[in-house]
């Protein structure tokens, strides 16, 4: 990563956001085009239907944007999109899903500087931001490779006593909702989204409230990486407000919780019982740790199906 370039961009942003007409140079400084941050539902970029927003500020108090404070209705629409997309996504070949995940990594690599820049705006230093983005790209490549392998590793042919051919294979759990990691802007998202979707699930993810910028940019990456509409849906907003909805929705099959708030986790676990949702408690994972990737994260969102057939004439 070119540090100097980042610095320049950072200054430019600062210029644009207030101290207009920085007078030192002869040339009049350019007015930056500021971005309107949206959410991502069914392959489209709406603002929240509720019209609500919260102001995201940098550590130095600069205003970074009016971020969508997503509503229950946004979530419900995202679940409809995820459910609609799930059978088609699941039916894609393992080779195809692997290539699409790899494509996400490729596109992310090409836009690396933007993500580092966004992480830095949200208070991460350059070294840590670079490390997080690199790790995110590598993690996508890691899971891309599992696409056509995890089924082999976790399947079995079972030597039953009767005269039957019997085998067990993993299949996607279905629609997964995710209360994403509050602490990290990018790696927390990638670490849950990648294993869930490589296994054929579709997801609705709530981004970090304090570090939402990368989530929105990630949506742009996903949209241009051949990921079909509805496979990944990304919302921004408040976990405390939304976790009840994320966990009680009857058409969501599993929920992953990535934060440390025990009360929120308990609420999720209670609501999950409405339709026997699978609950994945990722509160203790440090996603920056290299150990926080493995095919067992894929298996967290899989069901084992066993099929019997007689052997005879």
């Amino acid at each position: 990563m070119d540090t100097a370039k980042t610095q320049t961009k950072k200054e430019a942003i600062m210029n644009g956001s207030g101290e207009n007409g920085h007078a030192s140079g002869k040339k009049q400084s350019r007015i930056d085009v500021l971005k309107t941050y949206k959410i991502y539902i069914d392959g489209k970029f709406p603002r929240t239907e509720s019209g609500r927003y919260y102001i995201l500020k940098a550590a130095d108090g600069r205003q970074l944007g009016n971020i969508c404070q997503s509503s229950r209705k946004d979530f419900r629409e995202a679940v409809v999109a995820a459910r609609k997309a799930q059978p088609g996504w699941s039916a894609k070949t393992a080779y195809n899903k692997g290539q699409i995940l790899y494509r996400i990594a490729e596109v992310l690599e090409g836009r690396k500087s933007q993500f580092i820049d966004e992480l830095m705006q949200q208070g991460i230093d350059n070294v840590a931001a670079t490390e997080e983005v690199n790790l995110s790209i590598d993690r996508l490549v890691h899971y891309a490779g599992w696409s056509d392998k995890f089924i082999q590793v976790f399947s079995s042919v079972n030597p039953v006593e009767s005269s039957h051919f019997n085998f067990s294979i993993p299949e996607p759990t279905g629609v997964v909702s995710v209360i994403g990691s509050e602490k990290t802007g990018l790696i927390g998202l990638i670490s849950v989204i990648a294993p869930a979707i490589v296994g054929g699930n579709t997801v609705v993810v709530l981004a970090s409230e304090s570090k939402p910028l990368c989530a929105i940019s990630l949506a742009e990456v996903l949209q241009t990486s051949d990921v079909p509409a509805g496979v990944v849906n990304l919302l921004t907003g408040n976990a405390k407000e939304l976790n009840g909805h994320f966990s009680s929705h009857m058409d969501v099959n599993a929920i992953a919780y990535c934060n440390a708030d025990e009360e929120q986790l308990k609420t999720i676990q209670i609501n999950a019982a409405n339709n026997v949702k699978r609950v994945l408690d990722y509160s203790k994972h440090d996603w920056m740790n290299a150990e926080s990737q493995s095919p067992y994260f894929i298996m967290d969102f899989q069901e084992i199906k066993t099929t019997w057939h007689p052997i005879g004439q």
């Binding site: 039953v160 067990s168 279905g174 084992i304 199906k305 066993t306 099929t307 019997w308 057939h309 007689p310």
Partner: peptide, 19 residues
């Protein structure tokens, strides 16, 4: 969408077979 599927048979069980 079911954990055990029997094709041309039904209600078979075995300790090696996940249920």
């Amino acid at each position: 969408r079911a954990g055990v599927v029997w094709a041309n048979t039904y209600n078979k069980f075995d300790p090696t077979s996940p249920f």
